[in-house]
């Protein structure tokens, strides 16, 4: 692909953004699964946060995951850049706007993808600085010992972060916007890829709605549980 994205066909750009988007959704599920382990209480065999800390180390050091991490960053960058290219082109396609803007019966979420996307992007940057780089370089985390082996207590870092109500609210609000983004995104990606079939599309739309609820709810129960000390 020697050609720059700007010169690709409008439909090619849509395929790329849709495929990158679907890949990012699959990542969200993996991320959510690992995050939820931080809520597992201590049991006979494991201490509190032990499973989470071990999972976090696996995600940081496993070579396969490391390769996927590069793919993931590429996915984010491609999705964001293509989204911006498409949006700027869309704005340019109507240089003179209407006095009375349209109010057709359509999904309201689809009209604000760039806005919700921007909010998620800001969240992503803050999130990377707050958690990812700290975890990556093992900064700001105390040591913890399981079976005589040293681990970094990232679970404790998360619990400490979510003591701040402002941060909890910011975190929840960001996921609310991610939910809005996903509500349109998931099913829309299939339409862009041409996979709209009258028999299966209602199912994909339902799946899209479920995803847009599960992801934000799943991610937000963690700060809520931690803040209110439910676990």
């Amino acid at each position: 692909m020697a050609k720059s994205g700007i010169y690709q066909s409008s439909l090619t750009k849509k395929y790329v953004i849709a495929l990158a988007g679907l890949f990012l959704i699959s990542f969200l599920f993996v991320h959510l699964g690992i995050n939820l382990t931080v809520l597992i209480p201590e049991s006979q065999d494991t201490e509190a946060k032990e499973i989470f800390n071990k999972a976090a180390r696996f995600m940081m050091l496993n070579p396969v995951i490391k390769v996927f991490e590069i793919v993931l960053f590429a996915g984010f960058i491609i999705h964001i850049i293509y989204g911006l290219i498409l949006q700027i082109h869309n704005w340019m396609s109507r240089p003179k706007r209407y006095k009375v803007e349209g109010w057709s019966h359509t999904s309201p979420f689809s009209k604000f993808m760039i806005h919700t996307g921007m909010i998620i992007f800001i969240f992503l940057i803050i999130h990377l600085v707050d958690f990812y780089f700290k975890a990556k370089f093992f900064e700001g985390a105390e040591s913890v010992w399981y079976d005589g082996e040293e681990y970094h207590d990232l679970g404790a870092l998360i619990i400490q972060k979510f003591q701040n109500l402002g941060f909890v609210i910011f975190y929840i609000a960001s996921f609310l916007f991610l939910g809005f983004h996903l509500h349109h995104a998931f099913q829309s990606a299939f339409q862009s890829l041409g996979l709209n079939h009258p028999k299966y599309f209602p199912f994909l739309k339902a799946l899209s709605l479920i995803t847009s609820i599960i992801i934000p709810v799943g991610f937000t129960i963690i700060p809520v549980f931690i803040y209110f000390q439910i676990v």
């Binding site: 396609s93 057709s104 019966h105 359509t106 689809s110």
Partner: peptide, 16 residues
């Protein structure tokens, strides 16, 4: 594309 029409966001206002 050449004529400068925008891209599809799957908002479906066209269908409506």
């Amino acid at each position: 594309d050449e004529l400068g029409f925008g891209n599809c966001t799957n908002t479906y206002a066209c269908e409506a």
